[in-house]
Simulated scan of single mutants.
Amino acid sequence: MSSHVKPTKIPQERDFTGGMIHSQSCAYIGSTGERDLDHKLLALSKEISGGEDNCLLAEMLISAVRTSRGAVTEGDFKMMNRSLKEMRIANEVFYPYRNCRKISVFGSARTDPEEPEYKAAVEFSDKMREAGFMTITGAGPGIMAAGNEGAGREDSFGLNINLPFEASANAFIAGDEKLVDFNFFFTRKLSFVKESDAVAAFPGGFGTMDEIFETLTLIQTGKAAIYPLVLIDAKGGKYWKFWQQFVVEHLSRLKLISDEDFSLYKVTDDVDEAVEEVVRFYSNFHSYRYCGDRLVIRMQRQLTEEKMKQLAKDFSDIIKSGTFEQSGPLPAEGDEPELDKLARLVFRHRRRNFGRLRQLIDSINEEGAS
């Protein structure tokens, strides 16, 4: 096995919403309904945090107090507490690896090691590790075990869901410090989406469908930043081809999705093609962030003048007003100084039809960067 995944030279932006959660203000943090208690909580938050997060901490404390005193059952209170605790633990596990690219691998827990889908998942995760990506799986058997096996323990994460009928974590991640146990599917899925730079799905059941449609929904609606989604069959397999047929004949034919939504994912039975799909996405593109009504796309290299003219011609439909411009970091990006050296493509985005935004990113990654 070759060397382990190294942090990227340019730090990774871990805001999976693309800038929607960066801004904060002390103008309004809510109230417990008791002014004296509000002042005490704000003072306590300042004392505890010692930084700029004191307003967020105060708001969280106020929410906790209101929850404990509100029309909430004990069961709901326990659920809220457990959810927050699970998110905190997951963040603590991922934090040391925040500058490493990661890919989530989904698929059936029922796939046996001798099946071609299992072998394809092992090969894929191994090649993604060689390409500089750590692997995140659901920590179970089947395709999940294959993902951890291919990536190796040191380059794997496991997000285990506690179920009464499933075995414990697979042998390739069991006992590792990067294994996280979840009681709730929604907190687990949040970690999958939030910590991933790409998603790969092999054949699976309801859980796999749930995970890929969740990913597609979040990206299609702009609630999560765009990243690659590859749907991989073993060589000659037809699982995803038949899935694609359903999407074409029903969702697309009935105009329940847009033609551009097909750009949000790729179906293939070629492992190398799947790896290339993910790697190419980050060949020039780095990340993006909304700053007010402007979308700032950060790139490894500037675009040529010819390329800028091509973008203006081909993608005018996604611009709300004005045109594409290249610039340095905007003032609103001042909280991310580690990204200052990246080139920027800035424009006013319509914030709809994110399949077209994916096509723009694909065009940025084509030849034409100086």
Rank of each mutant, 00 (worst) to 15 (best):
113 P>R: 11
349 H>T: 15
150 G>E: 07
38 D>P: 08
186 F>Q: 04
7 P>W: 13
73 T>W: 00
127 K>E: 04
126 D>T: 02
264 L>G: 03
272 D>G: 07
179 L>R: 03
335 D>N: 07
139 A>S: 13
171 A>M: 07
317 D>Y: 08
148 N>M: 04
229 L>E: 00
185 F>N: 01
19 G>R: 00
116 P>S: 10
338 E>T: 03
314 D>Q: 14
141 P>H: 09
61 L>E: 07
157 F>Y: 04
250 H>W: 13
243 W>A: 15
282 Y>I: 00
303 L>W: 12
177 E>L: 01
224 A>F: 01
56 L>M: 14
63 S>Q: 13
134 M>W: 09
46 K>Y: 05
76 D>S: 12
252 S>L: 09
76 D>N: 12
60 M>C: 08
103 I>V: 14
19 G>E: 13
183 N>G: 12
265 Y>G: 15
337 P>E: 00
299 M>R: 10
175 G>C: 13
370 S>Y: 04
215 T>G: 09
13 E>C: 12
323 T>R: 00
288 Y>I: 00
82 R>H: 01
151 A>K: 05
153 R>K: 12
239 Y>T: 15
177 E>C: 13
195 E>F: 05
36 D>F: 15
274 A>I: 05
307 K>C: 02
209 M>I: 03
262 F>L: 09
249 E>N: 07
90 A>W: 10
65 V>G: 03
327 S>Q: 07
99 N>P: 02
219 I>V: 12
89 I>W: 07
257 I>C: 15
214 E>Q: 10
63 S>I: 03
263 S>G: 10
292 G>T: 11
76 D>K: 08
94 F>Q: 02
258 S>G: 08
73 T>M: 02
316 S>W: 09
16 F>W: 07
253 R>A: 10
131 A>Y: 14
51 G>K: 05
365 N>C: 01
312 A>G: 08
188 R>W: 09
44 L>M: 06
98 R>D: 08
40 K>S: 03
103 I>C: 07
7 P>Y: 15
50 G>H: 05
339 L>Q: 11
37 L>M: 06
109 A>S: 09
278 V>G: 01
34 E>T: 14
289 R>S: 09
185 F>R: 00
235 K>T: 14
132 G>S: 09
261 D>Q: 15
226 I>L: 10
108 S>G: 06
16 F>N: 15
14 R>W: 00
127 K>Q: 06
20 M>N: 08
225 A>N: 04
132 G>C: 10
285 F>A: 08
46 K>T: 09
51 G>F: 06
95 Y>C: 03
123 E>H: 05
130 E>G: 11
159 L>I: 10
211 E>I: 02
328 G>K: 15
143 I>W: 14
121 A>G: 13
139 A>I: 00
35 R>M: 14
199 V>G: 02
245 Q>T: 00
255 K>W: 11
286 H>L: 00
222 G>Q: 12
328 G>P: 11
225 A>K: 05
46 K>E: 13
140 G>V: 12
355 G>E: 06
305 E>K: 05
189 K>Q: 00
12 Q>K: 14
353 N>V: 02
344 R>H: 12
369 A>N: 10
32 T>I: 04
283 S>Q: 04
83 S>Y: 02
176 D>L: 04
163 L>M: 02
253 R>K: 15
